[in-house]
Design a protein around this nucleic acid. Structure first.
Length: 746
DNA sequence: CTAGGGTTAG
């Protein structure tokens, strides 16, 4: 038999078609692997070479990177000279393990065999060192000494541990073959694994390192390696360019990436789908619509706009640029969708406030027989927070626990936020404390949760713990802690944090920080101070900032300052409806009914009408909404009757309606009537008559609850012996035993 | 041998 025939006979069972680019299934590979080891000495060299190559490539393409690597090691025990086609796969496996030491060994081997000029091998090495660059700190490019200087032996041991884990998980060759697992392990040569025999290859890399690309000072190891390999490559193709560009993007070196794209054009190499899909995330990060449109246009002109990867990236960029129309049309134009496309779409909707659409896409994804992954969950849960839909949130939480995803930091953080926003601060806290690792976002989420629930002391404690644990507070963390102080009137604490933010952390305060401070000072009655504080803002303060102060003027009945403030609001934002309404209310509160009327008239002239306040409540998984004074509600009669009985009892124990906050020039009796029909009372009334005793009643109100309602609810809950949780647009109020968690701090 | 998506924001 000739060696060609021999080769055919041996490989026949494993290959259905041509041998050139074929890949084996995992099972086939395992079989071939065992036979190869058994009959190695009896096979002709070409058959052996082809088999090893086939095995290594197949293992790699099935993500069995460790098996692929140990295969390489085994091969080197038997074969002196080998085909260069094995290297790309081997290098890819090293990259996947982020094993720098191992990668260097293999690189040394490449050099020793004299294959460093090969295009494919070179591209694979480029890609590998790019990935290591991300490991070494990306843009900062700090050296990760543990990995860079890692001993080959250490890499080896770590590797073997990985192999064992990989084997016990995804694949089980012994089970598929019905063989014994011991033998299978032995046949895979796991116990005799060694790459850099006597460290020889490593030395080669080291010695060429100084002159070639291995400058390891200042941690520039990887950036330089990639650069150098690229520069000295005898031949470069589109893949080489794409790899380097992607590497730059992933390390946050956007300018370098753009320069490369331009250079590439100068060398007459046309960007393709891979190039574009590396460029789009840059546009996304800078929310640069102009550049995104440019790339999109290029894709259309070159007929690659319906590529799934480009499609997903385009959806993402347009989402980050709040171009809702654009990302919908990209999505609708895609001929094919994969898991990532759906995730991008879910995230795109949720990030742009389209929570219901987000849910719709989530459901479509499941209907499309795609399993939602960790990214799907961390994208959709914020939609529950936004809709305050505890029921959806709980369902998702259950699913997450069942799929074993609860330890994902992204998901856990979004769950913490969701439970806090849905009024379940205790659950939020317990999820938080059960997290194995806390990062900046999860700390911030729980601090914000405490802030929303008026638990300022817990917020302060957590902020301190965060600092102790070495997490550096960010812009957002300070918004959270200032909000916490603001909701509990901790003026001095807030000032302390505000100053620390600027001096210690070098964070420039933004509108949100000013707003929190202004709100705090205003509520504490230090109106002039708040006014001065806002005036100190370097840029022209936006209307929203003044609105907080205007609201404080209303609470503290300071007409004079209110006029000053509203003038400033209308100067920057003449369309600010809220300002007219609050002003009108402030005037009527001061019995200046003429001025109040003027305000309302100018509102009407502009064609604005006041939207009635709305509250909603979830009962038995259904959402009910109530408008103030809406007598047409299906249950209005029943609710009204129940509330009347309740009010009678409340008055007996001391409730007196306080009509001060009814800002209309009408009779006292009418004022009382209006108060009694506030939307949250209707909602609570509905909650009382439609849920069993002992149930907590949760109501969301879209505007701030007034003082009289606050007082009334305290009486209510003490009579019906229920817990009542209300969220108005800034915070949660927990009513229990006739008291409120906010301590009546306004 | 090269590519895309996620959490916190009074």
């Amino acid at each position: 038999m000739t060696s060609q025939q021999h080769l055919r006979t041996f490989l026949e069972p494993f290959l259905s078609t041509s041998t050139a680019n074929a890949l084996l299934t995992t099972a086939q590979a395992k079989q071939l692997h065992c036979q190869l080891l058994r009959r190695h000495g009896h096979l002709p060299v070409p058959a052996v070479l082809l088999s090893w190559k086939l095995l290594i490539r197949s293992y790699t393409s099935h993500d069995l990177f460790s098996v692929s690597l140990s295969c390489f090691v085994q091969m080197r025990r038997f074969v002196e000279h080998f085909n260069h086609f094995v290297f790309p796969s081997v290098v890819k496996s090293c990259a996947w393990w982020m094993d720098v030491g191992l990668g260097e060994c293999v690189h040394g081997c490449v050099v020793k065999v004299g294959l460093e000029g090969d295009l494919y091998v070179g591209n694979a090495l480029l890609s590998m060192y790019s990935k290591f660059g991300v490991l070494c700190g990306g843009g900062a490019r700090q050296s990760n000494n543990a990995s860079v200087g890692m001993d080959a032996e250490l890499g080896l041991r770590r590797h073997v541990a990985h192999v064992v884990r990989e084997k016990s998980g995804a694949i089980s060759p012994s089970a598929e073959e019905g063989g014994r697992s011991d033998e299978s392990n032995a046949s895979l040569g796991l116990n005799s694994y060694e790459v850099g025999r006597s460290g020889k290859e490593r030395k080669i890399v080291r010695s060429i390192g100084t002159s070639w690309f291995m400058k390891r000072e200042r941690g520039n190891v990887v950036g330089n390696s990639v650069r150098k390999i690229f520069d000295v490559m005898p031949a470069r193709d589109l893949v080489s360019w794409n790899t380097v560009i992607a590497g730059n993007v992933q390390s946050g070196m956007y300018d370098e990436a753009l320069v490369m794209v331009r250079k590439m054009g100068l060398e007459n190499i046309r960007p393709d789908a891979f190039t574009l899909s590396s460029m789009l995330p840059m546009c996304a990060e800078y929310a640069d619509v102009v550049k995104a449109k440019e790339v999109h246009g290029y894709a259309v002109r070159h007929g690659i706009h319906d590529n799934v990867v480009i499609g997903s990236s385009l959806i993402d960029v347009y989402a980050k640029c709040t171009r809702i129309q654009d990302f919908f049309s990209v999505f609708n134009g895609l001929p094919r969708r994969d898991g990532i496309t759906w995730n991008s779409m879910i995230a795109a909707c949720v990030q742009n406030g389209l929570s219901n659409e987000g849910f719709e896409f989530f459901r479509c994804m499941v209907k499309d027989n795609l399993k939602p992954g960790p990214l799907s969950f961390s994208s959709i849960i914020p939609a529950c927070s936004h809709l305050t839909s505890l029921i959806f949130g709980k369902q998702l939480h259950g699913y997450i626990v069942r799929t074993g995803l609860r330890d994902n930091v992204f998901i856990a953080s979004s769950l913490v936020d969701m439970y806090a926003k849905c009024g379940k601060i205790e659950i939020a806290k317990s999820i938080f404390s059960n997290m194995k690792q806390h990062d900046l976002v999860s700390w911030t989420a729980i601090i914000m949760g405490c802030a929303l629930h008026g638990q300022a002391l817990d917020a302060l404690k957590l902020f301190n713990e965060m600092e102790v644990s070495g997490v550096r507070p960010s812009y957002v963390s300070f918004i959270a802690i200032l909000t916490a102080c603001s909701h509990s009137g901790l003026v001095e604490e807030a000032r302390k944090y505000y100053d620390r933010m600027i001096q210690e952390f070098g964070i420039t305060p933004g509108v949100e920080h000013y707003a929190a401070m202004a709100d705090l000072l205003g509520r504490a009655g230090r109106l002039e101070e708040a006014y001065d504080f806002i005036c100190k803002m370097p840029a022209e303060p936006p209307g929203s900032l003044w609105s907080a102060l205007l609201n404080a003027c209303r609470i503290h009945k300071n007409v004079e300052l209110a006029e000053k403030v509203s003038d400033r609001i209308l100067a920057v934002d003449p369309e600010n409806i809220g300002a007219y309404i609050i002003m009108s209310n402030i005037y009527s509160g001061a019995r200046q009914y003429k001025e109040a009327a003027t305000m309302r008239v100018s509102l009407r002239k502009r064609g604005f009408t006041k939207k009635p306040a709305c509250s909603w409540i979830e009962v038995r998984n259904k959402l009910y909404s109530f408008f103030s004074g809406d007598k047409s509600h299906q249950s209005y009669e029943k609710i009204s009757k129940a509330l009347k009985v309740l009010y009678a009892q409340m008055e007996k124990i001391g409730y007196k309606p306080d009509t001060n906050e009814v800002f209309q020039d009408i009779e006292e009796e009418q004022k009382k009537e209006l108060l009694l029909n506030h939307s949250e009372r209707l909602a609570i009334g509905f909650g009382i008559i439609s849920t069993p005793p002992g149930t907590t009643i949760r109501v969301i109100k879209n505007i701030r609850i007034c003082m009289d309602c606050h007082t009334a609810i305290k009486y209510m809950c003490s009579i019906v012996a229920r817990e009542i949780v209300i969220r108005d647009n800034s915070r949660f109020h927990h009513f229990k035993n006739g008291a409120c968690s906010c301590g009546d701090y306004w």
